[in-house]
Design a protein around this nucleic acid. Structure first.
Lengths: 149, 149
DNA sequence: GTTTTTGCAAATGATTTGCATGGAT
DNA sequence: ATCCATGCAAATCATTTGCAAAAAC
């Protein structure tokens, strides 16, 4: 629930306000957890001339300024979200790839407690849950074949 | 601490015993958390004719049979380890990329407790810690430049 | 008017795939 | 002898990079 005044947010971070950046922010905000390719198709509906590379550049720049957050699902393309304030986690359906946000577990930042034995000073912990989403559990019970998007 | 009788393990999973598979298993076991490219250079010392693609294929096949485990560091190449029995986690140094194993936190499988509110049935949780390894904390205090391997 | 961004194109890096030969059983 | 695995080559996918033209300030 950001204030969502993109032009202001962009200026505050020293980025110029462009149609493509606004469109990308809008697309990512409306449908989070999608790869660049997918963001591009959405944005292209309004800006037919935007290239995939530009979307990559925009996503990169917005990430660098923390206007969006990049998430790398294991073995899949990077995806993006506008929820940047809290350190929430993600759940991935192993069947359809669907990604859902997961609020921090245990009430308190749980997995941030790294083992003291470790030779590393830990800054953050990212948790990725894997399982079956409701839809896929349903589908699996019926037809073991075919994976939906 | 697997028994480490690779030939037997391979046969048990229905895989033929080949020099390249043994060499890859050995290399991954000796130096875990390395990308395919790096495994290849090690293996190539003994098997100069092995190709990178074969290493990829072997790593893929061994992963499929759970003889090794694949780990995808966010934004970096996949890496592999022979520790497959327990669901341990990983800590990545944000400076040099070094990866260390992390035994399950909290004594018990901690982050496996997914929020009940979630529409997903969770099978596993993978935790990735990010921070600075001992060496890099040292180096950073002295010279803020240059990243060691 | 100056500097940043975009569009366009090509390059890169990681990984997969197809097919014929060589090797394991 | 059979079937699987490797070597070789090409293809694919995600992403980055270089440069000139267009847009934002």
């Amino acid at each position: 629930m950001t204030q969502q005044d993109w032009p202001t947010q962009l200026r505050e971070r020293g980025l110029r306000v462009t149609r493509q950046r606004l469109a990308v922010l809008e697309a990512v905000h409306a449908q989070p957890h999608r790869p660049a390719e997918s963001v591009h198709s959405t944005v292209a509906e309004q800006l037919p001339d935007i290239t995939v590379q530009s979307v990559y550049t925009v996503l990169h720049d917005l990430s660098a300024k923390d206007l969006i957050r990049r998430f790398d699902p294991p073995g899949a393309a990077a995806c993006y979200e506008t929820r940047t304030e809290d350190n929430h986690h993600h759940a991935i359906c192993t069947r359809c790839g669907r990604i859902e946000d997961v609020d921090c577990v245990h009430g308190e930042a749980p997995c941030l407690e790294a083992p003291a034995s470790l030779g590393m000073s830990i800054d953050v912990a990212d948790v990725v849950f894997r399982g079956l989403c409701a839809a896929c559990r349903q589908t699996q019970a019926e037809s073991p074949a075919s994976v939906a998007a």
